[in-house]
Design a protein around this nucleic acid. Sequence first.
RNA 1: GUGCCUAUAGCUCAAUAGGCGGAGCGCCUGACUGUGGCUCAGGAGGUUGUGGGUUCAAGCCCCACUAGGCACCCCA
Length: 420
Amino acid sequence: MKYQRVRGMQDLLPEDQPYWAHVEKACHDLAGRYGFERLEAPVLESTDLFVRGVGDATDIVSKEMYSFVDKGEDALTLRPEFTAGVMRAYIENGMGSRPQPQKLYSFGPIFRRERPAKGRYRQFYQFNAEVIGTPDALADLEIMQIAHGLYSRLGFTNLVFQLNSTGDPECKPRFIQALRDYFTPLMDRLAPLDRERLAKNPLRVLDTKERETLPLLADAPRFVDYLNAACAEHFAELRAYLDDAGIRYEINHRLVRGLDYYTKTVFELWGEGLGAQGALCGGGRYDGLIEALGGAPTPGVGFATGIERIIMSMRELGVQPAPLPRPDVFIAHLGPAAKRVAVQLAAQLRAEGTGVRVAFGARSLKAQMKDADRAGCALALLIGDDEVRDGTVTARDLAHSEQATLARADAAGWIRAHLP
RNA sequence: GUGCCUAUAGCUCAAUAGGCGGAGCGCCUGACUGUGGCUCAGGAGGUUGUGGGUUCAAGCCCCACUAGGCACCCCA
């Protein structure tokens, strides 16, 4: 085959669309219900925005970005996540002067140049929601609520968030130091990979999968014990809200997230049928991000969920989306004169709002009826020499195998009466 | 980016020990000259992912590349 999909990209075929339409609609509906407004930033941003916003030590920035230099001038990158671009838009459009907080959501493609696997694509879609401009733990709750609401609406049960707090610039360094102090004497019992992590990014040792390291984690310092008063209070407040809302969560002391900008709240939720890529959604608070990007000090909290992973999980769990609307009426014709009448009748019915499919070519009536059936049309109109001569149409109800010949002007009324 | 596995018709898969590539579904046509679903019959559709190599002979063995899957890394 000469041309094939670019690695890690996928075609969304007609049979996939009911799932997409269903999930997308749920996202828009829910966002609206919570008072989120849509903001769509461009797919392309300056490379530097992500380097600063996401962090140059992160995997996303250090090895997963689609970056290029445009005509030898601008260093550009296909967005590897939503938040940095949304924050840029918030700052650039002066949205800090609008009523705070701003509740914004986005839906669109994200690009990461990773090795593809089940549930992992190089172009994938995310639904993203952010509450910008308030430190209130209620904002954290709403972000988790909208995620929870989305999944339960889509048919997921047994939803349990993994929750942790990663402190702020004041207490986070103290915790990292405590981790170093704990693991350094145990260095020779750590897996080689974790020795590297301890040096480069000690938090990462916490979510290791290395067998040798796992037993050492039991007595490792826990972030919750190192939170300062403000962070501890925020965390307690959020937990109280979650309890009141009946949203289930587990405190996961090993949950640390990959992006540099997280402060205080971090959470994830896991799905079924995703292979090793279990995360259905992830999010957290990022109180220092906007300032780091050149805006006024502004707190924020948000989450993102992967649409492909939702759909994969839905399929795994046997959740069926509603079928997409299809044309109700099929028009079959026999002979050139009849075909011209059919085209006119189709135009007229479509103008009135009826979905109509007209047979192409000049095939046998049998073949045309077969097409009508396979297209899922409930009703068929037949026009042949007799109907052209008499100004009539033969109308057939495919589901009930009943038909009648009527004046062409009565076709619309007959259709209305026979639609399922 | 690393390791392992895989690649045959549009789809799901067969092909004994290297020896003329098949089936089911789907598609087209007919049985039924103006009537769908069910049934029956016939037909189209392949450079066996791509490029090399070994051999009298390669879908099958060897190498590279491409793509997918699984596990890492990490994440949605």
